[in-house]
Simulated scan of single mutants.
Amino acid sequence: MQTFDIRPTLGVGPIRFGMTRDDVRELIGPHDGDGDEEREWYLEDLAIDFNADGKVAFIELAGSENFRALLDGECLHELDADSAVAHVKKLASFDPNGPEPGYTYIFPKLQLSLWRPVVPDASQDPDDPTGRTFEAVGVGPVGYFVQNSG
């Protein structure tokens, strides 16, 4: 299993913001065949958004059996949601006024987001893992979340 370090504002693993599609494919192989002009999927759970110039503009990582993505030594997909937020908060604070409170946490200084589809509550079956961890970690270049918020 591959391990990628999340490098806030720079990229993930060998992928850097501003690289071309060809650069990405040379580093991690062909895309999965699913995608459009703006987004391509790699290694089943790694989505890369490209800007109009065909350069890496945003990277989104889902929990995966094909790779682990680490931020400061921790895989955010493997931590429970509260622990993941606490881990990232050691590096920077999140925007308390961000969209979808509880579902999405945006850390502007890091240009990093955490997302889950539901926020578990007392009525959720204790054996149901949905929402107990974050399903997506997003990483953007400097200014991404300022330009793309609200």
Rank of each mutant, 00 (worst) to 15 (best):
G138F: 09
W41V: 01
L91S: 13
K90Y: 07
A136D: 12
I6R: 00
P96V: 12
D45C: 00
E65H: 13
A62M: 13
W41Y: 11
G150F: 08
N66P: 01
G29R: 02
K90A: 12
R39Y: 02
I28T: 10
A62W: 02
P101F: 04
V119A: 04
P117F: 00
Q2G: 00
D127Y: 13
D95T: 07
Y105C: 11
V139L: 09
V146S: 11
E78V: 03
G131K: 02
T20Q: 12
V24N: 03
N97P: 03
E74H: 12
Y103M: 13
D125N: 15
E40F: 07
P101C: 13
V137S: 04
Q2E: 04
D49F: 10
L61T: 08
Y105I: 12
V118W: 03
F134R: 01
P117Q: 08
L61R: 06
P8F: 04
L110P: 07
P129L: 06
H31D: 15
E135H: 06
H31R: 01
G98H: 07
D80T: 06
M1P: 00
G143M: 09
R7M: 10
H31M: 01
M19D: 12
F4H: 10
G143Q: 05
F50Y: 15
A136L: 13
D34I: 11
T133D: 03
I59N: 08
G102S: 11
A69I: 02
F50W: 03
P14E: 13
A86W: 04
F94Y: 15
A84V: 03
Q111L: 05
D36T: 03
D45K: 05
L27R: 12
K55S: 07
P117D: 14
K109T: 09
S123R: 09
H77M: 11
L114S: 10
R21C: 08
Q2R: 14
V118I: 14
G63K: 10
D125F: 05
E40M: 04
A86C: 04
D23P: 00
A122R: 13
P108L: 12
I15P: 02
L79M: 10
G54Y: 01
G140S: 06
V12E: 03
E74Q: 14
S83H: 09
V146F: 05
V118N: 09
G150R: 13
R7G: 04
I59K: 04
D49V: 01
L70A: 02
L71F: 12
N148A: 11
E26I: 06
K89F: 00
R132C: 08
R116S: 06
P96A: 13
A69M: 01
V139T: 09
G102L: 05
D125H: 13
D23H: 03
H31A: 10
